[in-house]
């Protein structure tokens, strides 16, 4: 966090994203504001359908054409990406400024081209390298992402690589564009635990070595404790809590963060039931009134059903959208199992 500056590299303000699906309007992102600081790693955590991918895809203009930015702005280097319309405009951002690593390494590579050709394509487009220079850079990149014998491996096809190795190739392609922001969308969900640990470590090392700013999207809080400087928790298209990694793991404030953390099997004891979140996430076709999590929260306050809570600031870096932090609210203790997180840290 030492390189963190006060200036956000990317600033999202009151962003609303809607999708048109079979004549109905789905409100996928609801009034999200977010600052991304230079040099930090921000983790965005949420269940499927919470909008974490939609939000970050909006930074690169990658959402499907039935989706649109209804309101708000995405400020990057003095430009408002929310106003971008044409592919030509987006090509100035995609890859060269913001690059993305996707979830499934089995489908994001072209099976008909050698991996060397795929990396060189990115180098040619974004850095203008050709011939020997491109080849040398490719070998350097493959080395960086921990692929041994890069001279030989660059001539191989994706099917000759295992899942973990393919994910390394994809990271190499993302880095070939020399981006400032690297978005990793569930980069390890499809991988084995041992490989997952290696990839997470690799991303962590590269982000620090190359002074990148990273956004790490996942549904598994257990994974991001490893890498994130800050954690943002998303629910139903809204950020409900954001803070430094320690703040969110040790002193979570929003009932949804409590629920997510409590349901981690790592905190369970054999013979006891794991905590489960009852019900299902709200239907985003309907307008959401109050706190979106209230219907699933057994301890919801009356105010939660009436009015959307504002962000309450707990520390300058930690804020949460819950009425529990209002001065009029009754005191509710977080679930007891959460104390086991601290014990894990000490053991």
């Amino acid at each position: 966090m030492s390189e963190k500056t006060e200036n956000p590299i990317l600033r999202v303000e009151h962003l609303d994203i809607k999708f048109n699906l079979r004549g109905k309007v789905l409100h996928a992102i609801r009034d999200v504001s977010l600052d991304l600081y230079e040099g930090e790693t921000l983790a965005i955590v949420g269940e499927s359908g919470s909008g974490k991918s939609v939000l970050t895809k909006a930074f690169m203009g990658l959402n499907d054409i039935n989706g649109w930015i209804d309101h708000g702005s995405i400020l990057y280097q003095g430009k408002d990406l929310a106003q971008y319309k044409t592919e030509k405009e987006w090509l100035t951002i995609r890859g060269r400024e913001i690059a993305m690593v996707l979830q499934d390494p089995m489908t994001s590579l072209n099976p008909l081209k050698t991996i060397g050709a795929q990396i060189e394509e990115a180098l040619r487009l974004h850095q203008g390298l050709r011939g020997e220079a491109a080849k040398a850079k490719t070998i350097e990149l493959l080395n960086d992402v921990g692929i041994t014998e890069p001279e030989r491996r660059r001539k191989q096809y994706p099917h000759e690589f295992s899942g973990g190795m393919r994910q390394r190739v994809i990271i190499a392609i993302a880095l070939a564009c020399n981006p400032r922001i690297l978005i990793c969308d569930e980069p390890t969900t499809a991988l084995d635990v041992t490989i997952q640990a290696q990839i997470i470590r690799l991303i962590y090392d590269l982000v620090h070595k190359l002074h990148l700013t990273a956004i790490y999207i996942t549904h598994d809080l257990g994974v991001v404790a490893n890498v994130a400087d800050r954690v943002a928790v998303m629910y139903a298209g809204d950020i409900v809590e954001i803070g430094t990694s320690r703040e969110v793991f040790y002193e979570p404030a929003h009932p949804y963060t409590w629920a997510l953390l409590s349901s981690l099997p790592q905190l369970g004891k054999k013979g006891e039931d794991l905590y489960t979140i009852r019900g299902t996430p709200p239907n985003l076709y309907n307008e959401i009134i109050g706190d979106a999590f209230a219907p699933r929260n057994p301890q919801a306050l009356q105010a939660d059903f009436v009015e959307r809570p504002p962000f309450f600031e707990i520390t300058p870096t930690h804020k949460a959208r819950t009425w529990l932090l209002d001065s009029r609210a009754p005191h509710i203790d977080p679930p007891k199992v959460l104390s086991r997180i601290r014990k894990l840290g000490n053991s």
Binding site: V193, A197, D220, G222, V223, A228, Q266, R342
Partner: peptide, 23 residues
């Protein structure tokens, strides 16, 4: 031991100290 070292721990402090053991 390698498998155990790869288990993700939901704790910011213990996660960073843990060394990854390769087999």
């Amino acid at each position: 031991q390698a498998l155990l070292s790869a288990v993700p721990q939901p704790s910011p402090d213990c996660a960073r100290r843990g060394e990854l053991v390769a087999y």
